[in-house]
Nucleic acid binder design. Structure first.
Length: 489
RNA sequence: GCGCCUCUAGCUCAACGGCAGAGCAACGGACUCUUAAUCCGCAGGUUUCGGGUUCGAAUCCCGAGGGGCGCACCA
């Protein structure tokens, strides 16, 4: 409903006090029925049939069709839409009813009926304005499609585009399901610090902030990993955390600076146990939310039913390059392939492990669709993972590639504090040499490890990407309510 | 960070070197069963911003800003 323009603005430089508060807006309203509930209970009515059932409904006016002394409005709530039917001689406030704006929130009371045309309706006896939409939110037919508006003013997008509501609801249900599934399996949800004195647990550039009272720089966490493993050391055998992590890196359709990670750790388990867990979590999630484990992502089929294929990194690289390579191949040979593939010389500091991984990422990874577990990661690029029981140059680590991109990262956790120290030192050397993403030595964590970390399997899953998969959307912003954007100026 | 594309009314879009338009929304009116209701009327713009070329610029050029996509980085 539009308020008449204030034509009596104060003279001179006195600031405009603005409109008088809308005292007539009620402080509460109690809907007795939802749109979906009304359809569920009354869709069986005959066209033209009236009932004595009085209900109250509330929501937003999305369409209005006036016809002189009778008017129809489409009222939308989170469950769907139901029609309001008002007539001049039976609806209190009819004249104001036909002046409501599209987007106004209203509460209406009336009896359930079906119009002659067979549309389930609430025949309004009285109604109340619950909020005024001073700004229109788009074309009633085309909605709002401007990408910038959609992500900057998500409240508009949510009302204008049903798909947005569906996607964010799907996300909520996915997180809820994963929580339940993990709790059913005996996992305990915990919370660990977001502010880290030393950024750790992943290879990424952190955001830096400052604590005034302590006068220390702190980092927004890039991963909860190390704290979660300290909880395992402290006796929590199965822990998980679902929370935000922050990485000070580029923004892209697949990257938001803050994103949600599920990490879990299970004592006495190794990476093969975690693989089975991933298969179960992801396939059961799809089954729960979509009713099937075979889905389509961006026009391409994807079958999430277990078991998923296993491939070693060495075999993938060998296949892509047409020659047998692995982590024991002389570095000069790997560097030669790197030059052939990229046209550039590999940095001197790279060992065979780093070279092999780079070759994998440059040649084989983009061709994978999955789901597939890539195993056989070099130990050199896996500073927190335990060495392979059969080959100390490899780590018992895997990534799941699903729909062509990395969905999770997991390993048998490194449990030897001496080995961990030497891995940290290697990372610290790389950091000192200019690799901003290399880890720094974390004495707190090493001290914790010296108290004894049992054999443990660990997992990190990017929730945003998982939801992208299920919602079949190509941009990570679709699954984040308020994605990071450059501020408007 | 680099490259390409893009920005016109509240929304969705035309006009692509020659008077800046339509539909929807808004505003006024008609209509007692509509479904994007219909009909009549009215209003709405520094064409993102700043320069330049031109008799003339929304249109061509340069720069800035926002956004998109790709690359780089990463999950």
């Amino acid at each position: 409903m539009t308020v008449p323009a204030d034509t009596d603005s104060p003279p001179g430089d006195a600031p405009d006090p603005g409109p008088v508060p809308q005292l007539e807006i009620p402080y509460r309203y109690e809907p007795s029925a939802s749109a979906a509930g009304l359809h569920r209970d009354h869709d069986g009515l005959e066209a033209g049939q009236e009932t004595d059932i009085e209900v109250t409904v509330a929501g937003r006016v999305m369409f209005r069709r006036d016809q002189g002394k009778v008017a129809f409005a489409t009222l939308t709530d989170p469950t769907g839409s139901v029609q309001l039917f008002a007539r001049k001689n039976t609806t209190a406030g009819f004249d104001d009813f036909v002046r409501t704006s599209l987007g106004d929130w209203v509460g209406a009371r009336g009896r359930v009926m079906k119009t002659r045309m067979g549309e389930l309706s609430v025949e309004v006896t009285d109604w109340v304005l619950l909020a005024e939409a001073r700004r229109s939110f788009g074309d009633k037919w085309n909605g709002v499609s401007d990408v910038e508006t959609r992500f900057r003013q998500r409240e508009v997008d949510l009302w204008a585009n049903e798909g947005t509501r569906a996607t964010l609801l799907l996300r909520s249900r996915a997180v809820s399901f994963l929580r339940r599934r993990l709790e059913d399996r005996g996992f305990v949800e915990v919370e660990t610090p977001l502010l880290h004195p030393i950024p750790g647990g992943a290879l990424a550039k952190p955001f830096v902030t400052h604590h005034n009272a302590l006068d220390v720089d702190l980092y927004l966490r890039i991963a909860p990993e190390l704290y979660l493993k300290r909880l395992v050391i402290g006796g929590f055998e199965k822990v998980f955390e679902i929370g935000r992590v922050f990485r000070n890196e580029g923004i892209s359709p697949r990257h938001n600076p803050e994103f949600t990670m599920l990490e879990l750790y299970q004592a006495y388990a190794d990476h093969t146990d975690i693989m089975a867990l991933v298969e179960d979590l992801v396939s059961s999630l799809a089954l729960h939310l979509l009713g099937t484990t075979t889905l389509t992502y961006q026009g391409r089929d994807l079958d999430l039913s277990p078991p998923w294929e296993r491939r070693t990194m060495a075999s993938l690289v060998s296949g892509a390059l047409g020659t047998d390579l692995d982590v024991h191949t002389p570095p000069a040979v790997l560097a030669g392939h790197y030059r052939d593939v990229t046209g550039e010389d590999a940095p001197e500091a790279w060992g065979t492990g780093k070279l092999l991984q780079e070759l994998y990422e440059k040649t084989a990874e983009s061709g994978l669709w999955g789901p597939v577990f890539v195993v056989g990661f070099p130990a050199e690029v896996s500073p927190l993972a335990r060495r392979d029981r059969g080959d100390p140059d490899l780590a018992e680590r895997f990534e799941a590639i699903v729909a062509g991109r990395e969905l999770c990262n997991a390993f048998s956790e490194l449990v030897d504090p001496d080995d961990q120290r030497s891995r940290f030192l290697a990372q610290a050397a790389a950091h000192a040499a200019g690799d901003e993403e290399a880890m720094v030595l974390d004495e707190d964590y090493l001290r914790a490890m010296e108290h004894g970390l049992p054999p443990t399997g660990g997992l990190g899953i990017g929730i945003d990407r998982l939801v992208m998969l299920l919602a079949d959307v190509a941009n990570i912003r679709e699954v984040i309510a308020f994605p990071t954007l450059r501020p408007e100026r």
